[in-house]
Amino acid sequence: MIYKDYFYVVIFMFLGIIFVLGSIIFSKILAPSKFSLEKASPYECGEKPIGDAWVQYNARYYIFAMMFVIFDVEAIFLVPWAVTLKDLGIYSFVEMVIFLFILSTALIYAFKKKVLEWV
């Protein structure tokens, strides 16, 4: 039964959550806890923190994330093909080479546009 298999995954998930929360709460009970403003201020090598850390950030990361989404989706397309390649034969191989060719074109385009350069 397939749902029975994935039931184990759910059990593992809940046990993981319980384990971490349990040990954190257990430690909270055991450990000393005394609030002080100095201790609770964000760590900045001993200096007084300047401004907030939640600022707008370099867009370069966003472009990498876009590239990742594109290529990861392509990889997921390739998985069922890879598993059944032995049965599908040469026809599917040619198709996939064309697919990979289009993918590489996108990668080369990204190269040329200097998207992959880090600043």
Partner: peptide
């Protein structure tokens, strides 16, 4: 040791 350490939550977190 880690179990007996204080857990500090940053103020603005």
């Amino acid at each position: 040791k880690l179990l007996l350490k204080e857990q500090v939550t940053p103020q603005n977190a």
